[in-house]
Design a protein around this nucleic acid. Structure first.
Lengths: 207, 207
DNA sequence: TAGATTGTTAATCGATTAACAATC
DNA sequence: TAGATTGTTAATCGATTAACAATC
């Protein structure tokens, strides 16, 4: 397995995983790179190149075993492991993410929800209590949290990120519209919804 | 202005826009590509290349006028125009997006919300009534809707997308975990949250 | 004018696609 | 075995960076 795989390849893995999951559920046992390429509208070359970064999962003359490839990609993506999360910001978006059961199914367990608004503290979302921000730091330490989901306005996001770094968080799933400055060993995955909407708007020009 | 600008360039425009907006709010009047590059952690070359796809916004020996460049990028992204939206799916995510006031500020106006669940129909979210799915098609026609926001499970998303295409929708902001098959002239911008979380999970490997 | 910085061309780098020998 | 399809190398394409003449 390559030491450093480009993010271009990584971006495509979840999509392969989704298609293979669907094929698996349909009872398809094997698939060739050509067949999968037609289904996904990518080149067969790209599929084979991408997969071979991680190992030879196929067999000449046969193709790929759907179940096996699905599992292997799952392992590559770390979906065979459990992750412990806290959601920071119990507003609408924080609540929406906390309510989303499919994350739980993939091993992403939300153990705590935090908000600075006293009106929201004490509320329960799917059995998880909303706690005051003051308890965040000790909660992360006590419960060995890996990932913080940041669904707060950008004005407070920078400060909270500092607290998270101090608490040795491993990764931040950032929904705030700001670039967080964190040490290199802290993973930040940004979801900037307004940027996505602007790209849509651009592509809509002249229509 | 180039006829066909790569999506790689387009992806970066909203981020430039965000930084220029912040500089503008801080009262900064002008900035050189080098200064901006240091702020954003990209190369000055890339900034100049990107901007020159759309025109010469700068001035030799001076740099760029912050206010002017901000406005120009806004125009490129179509943020000087108003857009009419419907949100389809009044679940947690649909509610979260409908409640997000910043979209409104950028000219994205949510005129209708739709759901097939009778318990949600009749509810009001920021003055917008949740209507039954049966009314979707006529609503789009009557109100000249540009963009549909799809926050429903993937099982129903494919069918609803067909209805949207029939209704001559121009763009779909798709939060369902499925690739929508639509004609070439319908824009689809995907937000696949679970894929984002999987990328985070991958980058977390071994930590 | 001299200095600064753009706009733009040329060079480099990396990612994608094509081709094919290896092999099931 | 013959046919099919992978794994992998080589060729191509596109995106990024460097360089510098143009010009404010």
């Amino acid at each position: 397995m390559d030491i450093n795989i480009s993010q271009a390849v990584i971006r495509r893995l979840p999509r392969y995983y989704r298609y293979l999951g669907e094929l698996k559920d349909e009872g398809v046992l094997r698939i060739s790179s050509r067949e999968l390429s037609e289904l996904m509208h990518v080149t067969a070359s790209q599929i084979r190149q991408d997969l071979n970064h991680f190992g030879g999962f196929g067999q000449q003359g046969y193709g790929y075993n759907v179940r096996n490839l699905y599992d292997e990609i799952g392992k590559i993506l770390g979906l065979d492991k459990n992750h412990k999360l806290v959601v920071i910001g119990a507003g609408h978006l924080g609540q929406a993410l906390s309510n989303y059961v499919n994350f739980e199914r993939r091993g992403f367990h939300i153990l705590g929800i935090f908000d600075k608004n006293p009106d929201l503290v004490g509320m329960k979302i799917r059995d998880v209590l909303v706690s005051p921000m003051e308890e965040l730091e000790s909660f992360i330490a006590t419960n060995d949290i890996d990932i913080a989901v940041l669904t707060i306005p950008k004005t407070s996001a920078v400060d909270v990120a500092k607290t998270l770094v101090k608490s040795n968080i491993k990764a931040i799933w950032n929904f705030a519209h700001v670039d967080l400055a964190v040490p290199d060993d802290v993973i930040v995955e940004n979801v900037h919804l307004s940027e996505s909407l602007m790209r849509l708007s651009y592509n809509l020009r002249g229509k």
